[in-house]
Structures are given as structure tokens and as C-alpha cells.
Simulated scan of single mutants.
Amino acid sequence: MKLLCFLLMLFSANALADDGFCRTIYDHAEITMSQRQKGVSLTFQLETIDGLGWTEKEKPFKNMLYTMVEEAYGSSKFSTLEMKKEASQEFAAKWYLRCLKANKK
């Protein structure tokens, strides 16, 4: 449920207009990898994305989230809490930098 609420906030008009959009991307990427590290299934994450009722205009964002999930599940799953946290933070930082670079163009 927490993930669903976050996704709804992510794609609200206010979030898109906010200067903190890349921070929102960071937060979502961190949650995505954290869920992967906790053992949440790939199908659950993809079904959650699918269940949001996307408009045609929002489909690029849906595709971005799919890519994010696919990349998270293509990464190693760690056993120690410290390594799980580090993996989530590094994954989020990678997506944050992508967002910053994309918005400079």
C-alpha cells in the first residue's frame, strides 16, 4: 500500500511541476531496490505499476518505472542488512543522476 501511495504521488501534476522531481525519482528507486532486497516478487512490483490506470500521456512514466524495476531485479540480492541498504542507496543515486542529466538537456 505504501508503494502504491508513493506511485500516485510520483505522477501527480504537482510532483511533475516541482523542482524536487529528481528527488522523487531517487526515493522511488530506493523503494524499488529495497523491495527487491526484501524479497518482494518482480511480478508484484510490475502488477502494482500496471494497476495504476495510466493515461496515454503518462505511458512514458510507466515505461520508466518498468525499466527501474527490471534493472533492480537484474541486480544481486544481498543477505546482510548493511549490503541491502547500500545497494538501495547506490541504485537510487544512479537514477537521481540520470534524472538530473535528462533535465539539463
Rank of each mutant, 00 (worst) to 15 (best):
Q35H: 10
L7R: 09
F61H: 04
G51S: 01
F6Y: 10
G39F: 08
F11G: 05
E56T: 09
F11E: 13
K85L: 01
E70V: 03
L3K: 09
I25W: 05
R36G: 01
K59E: 06
E71A: 10
L46K: 12
D18N: 12
F61W: 08
F78W: 12
H28L: 14
V69C: 02
W54P: 09
T80I: 02
D27R: 10
K62A: 04
G51Q: 05
Q35C: 11
L42Q: 13
Y73W: 15
E47K: 11
K105Q: 04
T55S: 14
S79D: 06
K85W: 01
N103V: 06
F78A: 06
C99Q: 03
S88K: 03
S34R: 09
A93D: 10
L8R: 15
K104V: 13
W95T: 01
V69Q: 02
I25R: 05
T48I: 04
K104E: 12
F91Y: 15
E58N: 05
Y66P: 01
R23F: 01
A72S: 11
K38V: 00
S41H: 12
I49A: 00
I31L: 15
L81R: 13
C5F: 12
V40Q: 07
E82M: 13
Y96E: 10
L97R: 15
G74S: 15
D27Q: 13
K105A: 00
M68R: 08
W95S: 04
E56H: 07
G20P: 00
K105R: 12
A92N: 00
T43L: 12
L7G: 11
F21I: 01
Q45R: 11
E70L: 06
F11Q: 13
K94S: 03
M68Q: 10
E47L: 09
L97M: 15
M64K: 07
G74T: 06
Q37I: 03
L16K: 03
K105L: 07
L8P: 06
A72F: 08
F61Y: 10
K59W: 01
K57T: 10
K77V: 15
F78K: 14
K57M: 09
F78P: 01
G74F: 04
N14K: 04
L16G: 01
M1H: 11
A92S: 10
L42T: 07
M33Y: 03
F78G: 03
Y26V: 04
L10A: 03
F11M: 13
Y96M: 13
A93E: 09
Y66D: 07
M68G: 00
K85S: 05
G39V: 02
S75N: 15
S75D: 13
A29P: 05
K59Q: 06
M1V: 13
S76Y: 14
T24C: 10
S76H: 14
K94V: 02
N63F: 00
E58A: 11
Y96Q: 05
M33L: 14
W95V: 00
A72T: 09
S12Y: 09
K59M: 08
C99H: 10
E86K: 13
R36Y: 13
K101H: 13
T32K: 06
G20F: 01
A15D: 00
I25C: 07
K62Q: 13
Y96I: 06
K94L: 09
Q45K: 07
E30S: 14
M68A: 04
E58T: 11
G74Q: 06
L10N: 12
K104M: 12
K105W: 06
Q45L: 15
